[in-house]
């Protein structure tokens, strides 16, 4: 596993603090995602994983610290401006627009792209044949796995994506489907999409990832290659409750 972050960091989160109203959720949190890497952010429920992604996306603005992509500061940018800088966010529970069809969900995502997206549409449908078959189906009536495919496809339309923030993609999916999703993430990564992956399912995330951070009550408590963390059963158990 090569550690590219020192030479070429794509995303640098530097000492951020984040609050939800009165409650302090993230404490002096720093992490780096190298270009082309898959970085896993693991930790127990409520550790602040989702909030970290929301802070990067500008949805829950930080109260302190800086977030940079390609050296440019993302501070005070609105989520739609951050999306235009190549960051795509796939939220927990996917949040596809249930009352819209598959096609309408994708058209909406393509809406913010500047170039003609017809070609990208064809690519997406070729990549996700299940979606092609279900173009006119309401997204809300699809299975969890299909909705996850749609959420990923939606994140790839519109402005070019080079950093994907994935929140719990395996949540609520059957093991077979989790493998499919892992394959898709790996495929995307081979096409130069950098991935920051938040997972409760630490084993799945660490098998995919190059590097890993462990988050505990809003603080980074461990940083290593994914293999090192996966191999250290004691640490896995201590931090993540995985036996």
């Amino acid at each position: 596993m090569t550690d590219r972050r020192a030479t070429d960091p794509l995303l640098t989160v530097d000492s951020i603090d984040t609050h939800y109203g009165e409650s302090h959720v993230l404490f002096d949190l720093s992490l780096t995602v190298g270009r082309g890497d898959i970085v896993a952010l693991v930790g127990r429920n409520g550790a602040g994983k989702t909030t970290t992604l929301r802070s990067i996306m500008g949805l829950t603005p930080v109260t302190n610290g800086t977030i940079r992509k390609d050296g440019d500061e993302l501070h005070r940018l609105e989520p739609h401006e951050i999306r235009k800088r190549g960051i795509s966010w796939i939220p927990e529970e996917r949040r596809v627009f249930g009352s819209l069809t598959v096609e309408e969900n994708l058209r909406l995502a393509a809406h913010s792209g500047e170039d003609d997206q017809t070609e990208r549409f064809d690519e997406i449908y070729a990549q996700f044949p299940r979606l092609d078959e279900r173009r006119d189906q309401k997204a809300g009536t699809m299975s969890g796995g299909e909705q996850q495919m749609l959420a990923i496809a939606r994140a790839l339309l519109g402005p070019e994506t080079d950093l994907l923030l994935l929140d719990e993609p395996s949540e609520g999916l059957a093991p077979q489907i989790v493998d499919d999703v892992a394959d898709i993430i790996r495929e995307l990564n081979e096409r130069d999409v950098t991935v920051l992956l938040v997972e409760q399912n630490a084993e799945m995330a660490l098998e995919l990832a190059d590097r890993a951070y462990v988050l505990e009550t809003g603080e980074i408590v461990h940083e290593s290659t994914a293999d090192q963390l996966l191999a250290d059963r004691e640490m896995m158990e201590g931090y993540l409750g995985v036996k």
Partner: peptide, 22 residues
């Protein structure tokens, strides 16, 4: 497309924003 945008925003405006739409 405008109608799609309106229906989607009514459903989940935060998600629409995160898709790059103001």
């Amino acid at each position: 497309d405008l109608g799609i945008l309106m229906r989607a925003s009514a459903h989940d405006s935060e998600m629409v924003d995160a898709l790059g739409i103001d």
